[in-house]
Simulated assay, not measured.
Amino acid sequence: MAVIPVELAGRGYEVRVGNRLLADLAAQARPFLRKRHACIVADANARRHWGEAVGNSLSAAGIEPRWYDVAPGETSKSWDSLARLTDWLLDQGVERGDHVFALGGGVVGDLTGFACAILKRGCGFVQLPTTLLAQVDSSVGGKTAINTAAGKNLIGAFHQPSLVLADLGTLGTLPERELRAGYAEVLKYGVLGDRGFFDWLEQDGRTVVALDPAATERAVAASVAAKARIVAEDERETSGARALLNLGHTFGHALEAETGFSDRLLHGEGVALGMVLAARYSARRGEISLADAQRVTAAVDAAGLPAEISALGLECDGRRLADHMLHDKKMDAGTLPFILLRAIGEAYLARDVEMTDIAAFLDEQLQAH
Rank of each mutant, 00 (worst) to 15 (best):
M1A: 09
V3L: 06
V3S: 13
V6G: 03
L8C: 14
G10R: 07
R16Q: 15
G18V: 04
N19V: 11
R20Q: 15
A23C: 09
A23R: 14
Q28L: 09
Q28P: 04
R30D: 11
R30S: 15
P31I: 05
F32I: 14
F32C: 12
R34V: 14
K35Y: 14
H37A: 14
H37Q: 13
A46Q: 11
E52Q: 14
S57K: 07
A60V: 02
G62K: 15
I63S: 13
P65Y: 07
R66M: 09
D69Y: 08
G73H: 12
S76P: 08
S81M: 05
L82P: 01
L85P: 06
D87R: 10
D87L: 02
D87V: 08
W88M: 12
W88S: 13
L89T: 10
L90I: 12
E95D: 14
E95I: 10
R96K: 14
R96A: 11
F101E: 08
F101P: 06
G104W: 12
G104T: 07
G106N: 11
G109R: 11
L111D: 04
T112G: 09
V126L: 05
L128F: 07
T130N: 14
A134T: 06
D137W: 08
G141F: 10
G142K: 01
K143Y: 04
A145M: 03
A145C: 11
A145V: 10
T148V: 08
K152W: 00
A157L: 08
H159E: 13
P161K: 00
D167P: 11
G169I: 08
L174K: 01
P175M: 06
E178M: 06
G182V: 01
Y183I: 00
V191Q: 01
G196A: 15
F197H: 05
F198L: 01
W200Y: 10
W200V: 04
W200E: 10
Q203M: 09
Q203S: 09
R206N: 11
D212F: 04
P213L: 11
T216E: 12
A221H: 11
A222C: 13
K227Y: 03
A228D: 06
R229M: 13
V231M: 08
D234C: 04
L244G: 00
N246S: 09
A257E: 03
E258Q: 12
E258I: 04
T259S: 06
F261C: 05
G270S: 08
G274S: 07
Y281C: 02
A283E: 10
A283W: 02
R285W: 01
L290N: 13
V296S: 02
D301A: 14
G304V: 03
P306H: 11
I309Q: 08
G313I: 09
D317H: 04
R319H: 11
A322C: 07
A322Q: 13
M325N: 01
D328S: 04
K329V: 10
M331A: 15
L340K: 00
R342Q: 07
A343W: 00
A343C: 02
E346L: 00
A360R: 15
L362E: 15
Q367Y: 06
